[in-house]
Design a protein around this nucleic acid. Structure first.
Lengths: 344, 344
DNA sequence: TTGTACGCGTTATCAG
DNA sequence: CTGATAACGCGTACAA
């Protein structure tokens, strides 16, 4: 039977609908025997409770929602798994919602909030430059994971991430330490005001600390409308740099995908990695370890970030904690794609 | 204001709820002026209709659901985009639902069917060996995309894919044509009854056509409980083969991810690709093109499959077409990772 | 063209 | 411990 409802089950068991409801939702006030019987009948009948009706009725679900913008970012996978584990521990369920690259994550969030009534929300990906007012309209605590916002203003949401500025600086310093001075940079669009900007600034800071002038010609910015963090973009940007005839002995891409795309472009120009040019990425994606050469990168501490994000959010839900900024340290993974500059 | 309902909007506009409903749902019987006014008020008020209530009330949504099992499979991204495009053309909306690797896709399907009331469903990924009865309980037309089921029994669902048997045979023949006779194979668990089995059979067939005996020692099967199509698995399986001391001049992995993992393992053993050993994959993932060396593979015609899947499903919905098997041809992409056997 | 009233499947409240 | 019944917010038949 297809369209079964709680009523059908009630009839089958010879009880009232509320008793069935109690059985399903682990309510305390119910006789164990009746409960067992009802659950058995439910299992036999392939009955599936209607979630729409549930959500409609329920004032607040014991759940949090996780909004993921932009798939393909493999490292979100791990993050999500970690988040799910934490939810389970707390007895919360975890609503996963994907947001298309071109969609506005906050609009989606508003819908999800209304439909699923979660008690809190975690955002992965996206730039997240939204008017404060609109965020507050959500009416539930929010945590941005992996997205470190630029600036220090009081925020209405929590934030858990690495310090993109410092980590980027760390990577640049590592490359400088290898003797590279002409370091090409592949990065987010000029307009970017979050991660991209911070990573760019970290790069600039490291240079200036060494008294090396920042050279705009060595930076390839993504196109705001067309590009994403993808292999193709990395390839295109590196190609562009090469065609302009820029000379550099290292290339630092602000994501591992970009780095891999760039490697291909370098290879096609007959440039050996790391012999002629070192290449570094950012994120610590799985696949960088399997690439040939394996990619030097900054690994984001995914488990920690997941755990901390969930922890912060749960505390915010309980009113125990105010939205704050949590920073975790990334790990510089030195692999095959980087080496000392030749002729030093 | 947070919890706004259709009533609030009605009050604000001085009209009845049904008029508001009509305005929102593009009903014909409504005065253009009142409609405009209502829509304006809605926009100003940040009102969001409650989807749970909508779904509860609506008998059937003009939508199809797409269930994706196992992210990480980059090539599903393209497929989903294609599907979405086709839906839009038909005026359908497209409900995307992710299924965890360890979850049962059919259970999820049952939930989604009940909650969102789509008119049809498309399944991506998974093995899909489910009892016919349970599938029929879904009560709506289903299409498996990319999953070609083994056997020829009459099915209750449609199927759009490449012919995994033939394509696998094609790849093996290509490798044989290069002079390779000892071809290692990285493939699905022994228990696999769908894609994995077909690809294995294609490999065997190609060998036997040439009178080359099938050698079990050259095949590395995934572990049913632990492994997936991942870099790590490819690495592990190739490593295992190497450690057993098997000698082979080509390695055919039944997915590009496996192939890339295997490349890494070969490299670490000092084996040059394709100099000492050719490597081939399957699927036509983006990243295979950027790998060094780029990976020879069978490219699945994603756009065609997406288009055909949607087309078949819509026809099944309209009752125009019975569930059937649609086969598309894959494309052998010869890239850098394969070459003629040395010393021929 | 518009408004009123009912019901979709649940859960929660309350009286038994 | 259990059952009837009132919401939840919306779409829609039907009446106006």
């Amino acid at each position: 039977m297809a369209g079964m409802t709680i009523k059908d089950i009630a009839k089958k068991c010879g009880v009232g609908v509320s008793t069935v409801s109690r059985a399903m939702n682990n309510h305390p006030d119910i006789n164990q025997e009746t409960k067992d019987k009802i659950l058995r009948v439910i299992a036999e009948s392939n009955y599936i409770p209607n979630n729409s009706a549930r959500n409609l009725k329920r004032s607040e679900a014991k759940a949090i929602a996780v909004l993921v913008k932009g798939l393909g970012n493999t490292f979100f996978g791990e993050l999500v798994s970690g988040l799910e584990r934490e939810c389970e521990k707390k007895g919360y369920s975890c609503i996963l919602q994907h947001v298309e690259e071109q969609d506005n994550e906050l609009d989606v969030a508003l819908y999800v909030a209304k439909e699923k009534k979660p008690r809190g929300m975690i955002f992965l990906g996206g730039n997240f430059s939204h008017p404060k007012e609109k965020i507050e309209q959500l009416g539930i605590p929010c945590v941005l994971s992996t997205i470190c916002t630029y600036g220090d203003q009081e925020q209405s949401f929590g934030t858990v991430s690495v310090d993109d500025f410092q980590e980027s600086r760390k990577m640049t310093e590592y490359l400088l330490g290898l003797g590279h001075e002409k370091i090409a940079l592949l990065t987010a669009p000029r307009e970017d005001e979050s991660i991209g900007k911070l990573r760019l600034m970290g790069y600039q800071k490291a240079l200036s600390d060494r008294g090396i002038p920042f050279r705009e010609e060595l930076v390839a910015y993504m196109d705001a409308s067309e590009d994403r963090y993808s292999f193709a973009t990395g390839y295109r940007l590196a190609k562009k740099l090469l065609e302009k005839g820029e000379s550099f002995t290292a290339l630092y891409a602000t994501s591992d995908t970009l780095a891999i795309g760039a490697c291909r472009a370098l290879k096609e120009s007959g440039i050996d990695i790391p012999g002629d040019c070192s290449v570094a990425g950012f994120d610590g994606m799985d696949m960088g370890a399997y690439y040939i050469p394996s990619i030097t990168t900054i690994r984001q501490p995914v488990e920690q970030i997941a755990k901390a994000s969930a922890g912060l959010l749960f505390n915010m839900i309980k009113g125990k904690e105010k939205p704050g900024k949590l920073i975790y340290e990334g790990q510089l993974l030195i692999r095959e794609s980087t080496a000392k500059r030749k002729n030093m």
